[in-house]
Simulated scan of single mutants.
Amino acid sequence: MGILNVTPDSFSDGGRYNGVEAAVEHGTALMNDGADIVDIGGESTRPGAERVDAATEIKRVVPVITGLVAAGVPLSIDTTRAAVAAAALEAGATVINDVSGGLADPGMAAVARDAGCPWILMHWRGHSREMTKLAVYDDVVAEVRAELRERVDAATAAGVDPGQLILDPGLGFAKTAEHNWQLTRHLGAIVELGFPVLFAASRKTYLGRLLAAADGTPRAVDQREAATLATSVLAVAAGAWGVRVHDVRDTADALAVWRASGSPRLEQQR
């Protein structure tokens, strides 16, 4: 899954693809580099980000979706709002990627149900401005697993086909660095829920801190690709269905090497 943010304030590439032409060009390049689907988002969900209204989000994403669909690019819509998801699906997106797991907008389940499309449910405890204080767990793996199970139950109770559900452990969303590493180490516990799992670590803050300079300065966002590649290979080896990344070409290359090696899937601790 290639990342395309049409926002001014996303943590990695905010402002780079604000124009429709630039966004369509980049989304097409992501597909050509090996993305199976391009995930387009019109609202930043980085920690501390301010929200925009649905009209602004729709205005940002729909023209880009129209252009990319015309170019033959498969698309998912990265949104927590039912109205935005509905507009994106109407414009030609085919997957909903909801970082709130259906919690932010009760109407999302009906949109996913009526469209009959895949719906990615991410583990989430609150919006960007409050997520840091919500990163409190006794056992992060067990609690994320249980809370994702609750989101699955809520979705199916609303009539969503369970065969259309995909889970995401939500690295960085109400998670500390140690929580992220625990979820990476025990990703098999999420996979064992029986749904496809999306893993999204690309360029995130905890990787920058891992690679910090001697003086403690985190590695710059655009210099975290090798670490991102490593997380992607580890995730796929642990059974992840997909990885959401900024650098599609190098990720596809790394996964091609892993597959060619015939390496077995990791037997992770449960």
Rank of each mutant, 00 (worst) to 15 (best):
P118K: 04
A23Q: 07
V191A: 09
V245D: 11
R149G: 10
R145D: 08
G159V: 00
D153A: 15
A82F: 06
V61I: 11
V62R: 00
A157V: 11
N5Y: 04
L266V: 13
R270P: 08
V20E: 12
R224V: 09
F11W: 13
L171Q: 10
T66Y: 11
R185D: 13
V243G: 03
V136R: 04
G48N: 11
L68N: 12
A213Q: 02
A237N: 12
A201P: 15
D9R: 00
P106A: 13
T66L: 14
V84A: 10
Q268C: 10
I120M: 14
P106F: 05
W258V: 04
A220T: 05
L4V: 14
N32H: 15
G216C: 03
M31T: 04
D222Q: 15
K59W: 05
T132D: 14
I166E: 12
V245R: 01
S261K: 00
E25F: 10
V61Y: 00
A154T: 12
Q269S: 10
R209E: 13
L210T: 15
F199I: 01
D114C: 02
E147S: 02
V236D: 05
D153R: 11
R51A: 14
D39M: 01
V73Y: 11
A86P: 03
Y137K: 02
D105W: 00
E150Q: 13
A109W: 04
V257W: 11
V257H: 09
M31V: 12
G42E: 02
K59P: 02
V248H: 11
S261C: 09
D98A: 03
V52P: 14
H186I: 00
S76F: 00
R203H: 12
V243P: 07
W241N: 12
